[in-house]
Computed example of a mutant assay.
Amino acid sequence: MSATYGPAALKAIADFLPIFEAPEFKFSHNDSPLRQTGEQSFEVVGYTYDPQVYAFWDAAEDAGWLQPFDWMSWSDTDEAIALRYQPDAISQATPEQLSRLLTMFVRAERFGDGAWLSLWQSGVLIGILRRAAILAEEGEQ
């Protein structure tokens, strides 16, 4: 990956921080990707994400955050695991690491509903946005 993430790219995603941190914000509007269609039958309908979630992913893509790379292999590395499960790692992440995380979750959502929800519920997305905001501010000074 060789993208450059200047203040404008960082701000493009960091601008979603106040939206996602608002107390009334609801990331997903259903608790299950299934809908019961009969006494013993269900239909997979996927998660219903807030429109701001889709706007965020569009902004991330437009700003160049989603890059082609071998995300499946990377997701099992010590680096990826630390970034996903250790909040201190996110607070020190480089823009490239943030890009890799975002790309991994976009691609994972294509394989199965709920990857974005896990990114949200784990607090990793908020961590990414907070880190992007800090890096954007540092880049503007």
Rank of each mutant, 00 (worst) to 15 (best):
I13A: 03
S32G: 05
D50M: 06
S28P: 06
A55H: 02
S2F: 09
A55F: 02
L83T: 11
L119H: 10
M104L: 15
L10Y: 03
D31R: 13
A89Q: 03
V106E: 09
A115Q: 05
P87G: 07
Q67I: 12
R35E: 15
L125P: 01
I134F: 02
A14N: 13
K11G: 14
I19V: 15
A132V: 05
E61D: 15
A59C: 04
P18M: 05
I81S: 12
G139P: 08
G123A: 06
A3C: 05
F56Q: 08
I128C: 00
A63D: 11
A12I: 05
A89N: 02
P23G: 03
Q86V: 11
W116V: 02
S99F: 05
V124Y: 01
S28D: 06
Q97H: 10
S73F: 05
D15A: 14
D50I: 03
Q141L: 07
G46L: 06
T103W: 08
E109I: 03
Q86G: 07
P51S: 13
T77V: 09
F25T: 00
S32L: 06
A63M: 06
N30H: 11
T4F: 15
S41T: 15
L117G: 02
F25V: 04
F56P: 03
S91W: 04
D70C: 03
P68C: 06
D62Q: 15
G127N: 03
S73N: 15
R84W: 07
I128G: 01
E21A: 14
R110T: 13
T103A: 09
E140S: 14
L102C: 09
S99Q: 10
R131E: 02
A89F: 06
S32Q: 09
L66W: 08
N30Y: 04
Q97D: 14
T37F: 02
L17S: 00
P87A: 07
S32W: 04
G64Q: 09
I134C: 03
Q86L: 12
I134S: 10
P18G: 05
E24V: 11
F56Y: 11
E96W: 08
P51D: 14
Q86A: 12
Q86Y: 10
E137F: 03
P95I: 06
T48E: 06
L117H: 07
E138L: 10
M1E: 09
S41R: 12
A133F: 02
Y54E: 08
F16E: 00
D50N: 15
A59M: 11
L129S: 02
V124S: 06
S2H: 10
L135E: 10
I126K: 14
L17D: 01
P51I: 11
A14C: 08
G112P: 02
G139H: 13
D78C: 02
E21L: 14
W57I: 11
E39A: 08
A12W: 04
R131W: 05
T37M: 12
Q67N: 07
R110M: 11
A136K: 05
A63T: 08
A89G: 09
V53F: 00
W57Y: 12
Y47D: 02
E137Y: 07
A22F: 00
G112L: 07
I126N: 07
